[in-house]
Design a protein around this nucleic acid. Structure first.
Lengths: 186, 186
DNA sequence: TAGACTATGTTAACTTAGTCAACATTAATG
DNA sequence: CATTAATGTTGACTAAGTTAACATAGTCTA
């Protein structure tokens, strides 16, 4: 309980992650985070330059988590399902990662790296899956899959509208692999 | 130049639209909007309950714009391209509409209506396009298209990453219809 | 080991932004 | 014309990000 904390930076990130994960990034603010860590509001600024740095770090960890998890996946559809489940399991972290255009990723190389790794994963897996396909076709396909996976998460999360809340979305959610087969390799 | 303005509410919305469209919603704030309209900061509150109401109105207009435009489209792929182009032509309005989970649409029925209309459009068009398909398959397909269209806009906008900024994205952007044919009806 | 340099925390305060309350003025209505 | 409703303004409050000045702890070297 000294004046200096054990590993404050890590603590702050974890607290912020927890709040963001539970309540969305909008509910993460310096004063709240600091209070939970039992330090002054501004202690944060000894470890980060600005709040955006914290955001970037949360995003980076999100990608890291996705990238780790996918090592266990073998089928391609299972792969897509893995991404979708991440979006459903960590909805607010997911928002931060993909619903966000205002952060300049090039300012955060570590983040950019994880982000690229995530997409590369799709591409590699797809190459294995359809080895005979022309290089370009494979890449276009990968883009399409990436795109539709992310779009789908959005739909699955917004069950409020007339059309989406139909049986269909529930069916899709419970049959992700089959859905991906259907739509990707029809 | 009286104390009362001609149609202040409309003016405020238009100013906000312009700022948002040019610089993103983050750069829209009451003081700036009020200044451009040459009224006091708080005049806004005579016409809206809170800032979110303004956001909802911009979103609603975005959907309206999309829904109007699609009446001119006939081919199905052209239809998808129409959505994608909207995302590219009005990137920040698009962000507001689709990169946003924190607004409870059910609080804004007019907005919800336009939003539903947008999705219904996809569904109807698809039914026309593949009339022989089973009802459910059509709906699933519509969801997939909706999802991938939105995901694609995100990719097309983030040309910063290694993988995305490849030729592929440029090719897709210039050949939206072909891309949609390729990936949707392969 | 003393002194000095660096890292890490704290306090107070500044700034921007959303919003409200009290008051002022114009418009509308009986 | 008098009252009321609508619309604007001023001033102020609050929340939140951030900075500057100061304080303490840890480290490293003479």
């Amino acid at each position: 309980m000294g004046y200096h904390k054990e590993n404050l930076k890590e603590q702050l990130v974890e607290i912020a992650w927890d709040i963001c994960n539970a309540e969305s990034w909008q509910n993460v603010n310096m004063r709240k985070v600091a209070k939970k860590a039992k330090v002054s509001t501004t202690a944060f600024y000894r470890h980060f330059k600005k709040k955006d740095d914290l955001k970037a770090e949360l995003m980076r960890r999100g990608y890291e988590l996705i990238n780790e998890g996918r090592k266990d996946v073998d089928t391609f559809a299972g792969y897509g399902a893995h991404y979708i489940r991440f979006g459903l399991d960590y909805p607010f972290i997911y928002d931060l990662m993909f619903g966000n255009t205002d952060l300049d990723m090039s300012l955060y190389p570590d983040l950019e790296e994880q982000s690229n790794a995530a997409f590369d994963g799709v591409l590699e897996a797809l190459k294995d899956f359809m080895p005979d396909s022309a290089e370009k076709d494979t890449r276009i396909k990968a883009i399409n899959i990436w795109a539709s996976v992310h779009g789908l998460v959005g739909l699955l999360r917004n069950g409020d509208s007339h059309v989406y809340e139909s049986e269909d979305l529930k069916w899709i959610e419970n049959n992700l692999e089959e859905y991906l087969q259907m739509t990707t390799f029809s």
